[in-house]
Design a protein around this nucleic acid. Structure first.
Length: 561
RNA sequence: UGAGGAGUCGCCUAAUUGGUAAGGCACCUGACUCUGGAUCAGGGCAUUGAAGGUUCGAGUCCUUCCUCCUCAGCCA
């Protein structure tokens, strides 16, 4: 009943599937997520993963995880391991349906041989350059290769010998015999097999010929009984070839390829080539750098799988190219963390504050709510004393009108504690820098006490100097300064050096001393943070996942950006 | 310039398949608040890429035009 509201919005792929189920064309859906293990998964893959596994889940079908590992030159086990970890972390399970295109190499070879025998494929001995020259252009048809009419017997022999390793790389390729005049360049006798003397990360030296994507993918789908083969828009032009191969082989089943628009996110790049360049060029600290749009980057940054899944659902599925505002992603992580992250006090840029009329040596244990959104999260005790740290940004000597926080002579509340008043500012006589605030407190205003209802304009977070734990805080922001770095010629130049700010003097409340890597918190009034794996004995490191919505920052930034 | 796709508020996505544009994000107001958070309540005239046409009625159908994306790897 109540779950009605959770019904996912419909989109054209769900409609296709529902039609197929209703008409009996398919009894159940079988989808697949087919990454090539040549890089780490990014948020764009997350959309595809959520789509494929989500569809299977929604309609009671199954989704396969299949590694499309037909290019040993670029692939590596490091990537297959990382990919499996990321898919699992996102919350999906392929059960025993883990496949590798490389497991089909023998069958694929047989299919290719059948094509040869049917006169639908031939061995071409043109060089790569020559093949390109023969292909023609968008406006001119291609020309037939002089080797196009080799006999079946000769093609058989040559293809056999290609496999046997009798030829050097590039000497021959196997091509489909389709139509060199087709307006679709993919149909101008596409290459099916090439010779590559490179060890494969799974098949080792077993093969020296490797099938190409267009030949491999449709047949792999077919062998697995995939019903709906969902891919991105750039493969639209390949669909005729996908269908041609299956038709030419008269396969027992014929999956339907359906294309949707890939995800583009503002202020980041998504192409594998560019992500690789960021890693290899040392512009980030690795694939899991929290500034990266990789799944592992988001994980380290503190994003939750739930937030990423919700986001992927919220952007929808369509055929139109689009660029989603990162703000939409940020909305989902805030929404999720707001409900579940324990609140905690942390001072990022400490400014010392002494309460002159508070007894020296006195310490009070104040009760603090762990999560106002979740009463079950309980409460904890915070030590309060005469010397505290507050945030430097929470004090201004000469505040503008809309600044509600502390200033000389002004009163604010210290969260869960007392109302204090700034009596004096201690400054460096040389530089004029503010070194310390001398304040007074009103003992009657302790939180929860009858007289505590007095109104002040602001409530500040704080930590006790004597009790606080030192921490390193890494402030992460969008990696690029421009909305569409991908569109810039010199995209690397648009990297924002301020996307990472490391604060080494932060002080956090004592309860955080035992926080474990991966744990997430809300630093009150600042944002959501998670414990970085660099954390260890005597060293606490927190990553900022996302800031809280910040009205004051918007006021400061001036009228609407 | 060939072929294949796509154009709906600033950004995403809908629209019972011809019935009079809806939701989320973002933004702005206000209320509330011991987080300038959260929450709640409001708000913005979207001439549906453009022009014609069919129709009582068009975002949906037809025609023409414009713009954008993809394709000339022995990458996927």
């Amino acid at each position: 009943m109540a779950e009605r509201a959770a019904d996912p919005a419909s989109h054209f792929i769900r409609e296709i599937i529902e039609d197929d189920l209703r008409s009996g064309r398919h009894a159940r859906v079988v989808t697949r997520f087919p990454p090539e293990p040549n890089g780490y998964l990014h948020i764009g893959h997350a959309k595809s993963i959520c789509l494929n596994f989500g569809l299977a889940r929604q309609y009671g079908g199954v989704c396969h995880l299949r590694f499309d590992d037909t290019n040993p030159a670029k692939e590596d086990v490091e990537y297959v391991d990382a990919i499996m970890e990321d898919v699992r972390w996102l919350g999906f399970d392929w059960g025993d349906r883990l496949f590798y295109a490389s497991d089909y190499f023998e069958q694929l070879y047989d299919f290719a041989m059948r094509l040869v025998e049917a006169g639908k494929a031939y061995v071409d001995s043109l060089s790569a350059d020559e093949i390109r020259a023969y292909r023609g252009t968008f406006t001119e048809p291609g020309r037939n290769s002089p080797y196009r009419d080799r006999s079946v017997a000769e093609n058989r022999d040559l293809f056999l010998r290609m496999r046997a390793g009798e030829f050097p790389d590039g000497a021959h390729v196997l091509r489909a015999k389709i139509d060199m005049a087709s307006s679709n360049l993919n149909m101008r006798d596409p290459t099916l097999y090439r010779i590559r003397r490179i060890a494969h990360h799974r098949t080792g030296d077993q093969w020296c010929i490797y099938p190409l994507y267009d030949f491999t993918h449709c047949l792999s789908d077919m062998l697995e009984g995939i019903t709906h083969s969902i891919c991105t828009l750039e493969f639209e032009n390949h669909r005729p070839l996908y269908d041609w191969v299956l038709d030419a082989l008269d396969t027992p089943c014929h999956p339907q390829q359906i294309e949707f628009a890939r995800l583009n996110l503002s202020y980041t790049v998504m192409s594998k080539r560019k992500l690789l360049a960021l890693v290899q060029g040392g512009h980030v600290a690795g694939w899991d750098d929290p500034r990266m749009p990789t799944i592992s980057g988001f994980r380290r940054r503190g994003y939750t799988p739930e937030a990423i899944r919700d986001f992927c659902e919220s952007v929808g599925v369509a055929k139109r190219d689009s660029m989603v505002d990162v703000a939409q992603l940020e909305h989902h992580i805030r929404e999720d963390l707001n409900k579940r992250a324990p609140r905690v006090m942390a001072v990022l840029r400490p400014l010392k504050l002494v309460i002159e009329n508070y007894p020296e040596g006195q310490i009070e244990e104040l009760e603090a709510v762990n999560n106002p959104e979740d009463p079950a999260a309980g409460t904890r005790r915070l030590p309060f004393a005469r010397e505290l740290y507050i945030e430097r940004d929470d004090f201004m000597e000469d505040p503008p009108g809309k600044f509600f926080r502390l200033a000389p002579g002004r009163e604010v509340r210290l969260r869960y504690a007392y109302i204090i008043k700034c009596e004096r500012v201690v400054k460096d006589p040389e530089t004029g820098a503010v070194l310390e605030l001398r304040c007074s407190y009103d003992p009657e205003t302790r939180s929860g006490s009858p007289a505590s209802s007095r109104k002040v304009k602001a409530t500040l977070h704080w930590v006790s100097v004597a009790h606080a734990v030192a921490a390193e805080v890494r402030l992460y922001d969008r990696l690029f300064k421009v909305e569409a770095p991908e569109a810039c010629d010199d995209w690397l130049a648009t990297i924002d050096p301020a996307a990472l700010t490391v604060l080494r003097e932060a002080r956090v409340e004592p309860s955080l001393a035992t926080a474990l890597a991966g744990e997430r918190f809300q630093f009150e009034r600042q944002g959501y943070f998670c414990v970085d794996p660099d954390t260890g004995p005597g060293r606490a490191v927190f990553n900022r996942t996302v800031t809280l919505r910040d009205t004051w920052a918007r006021i400061q930034a001036g009228p609407a950006r």
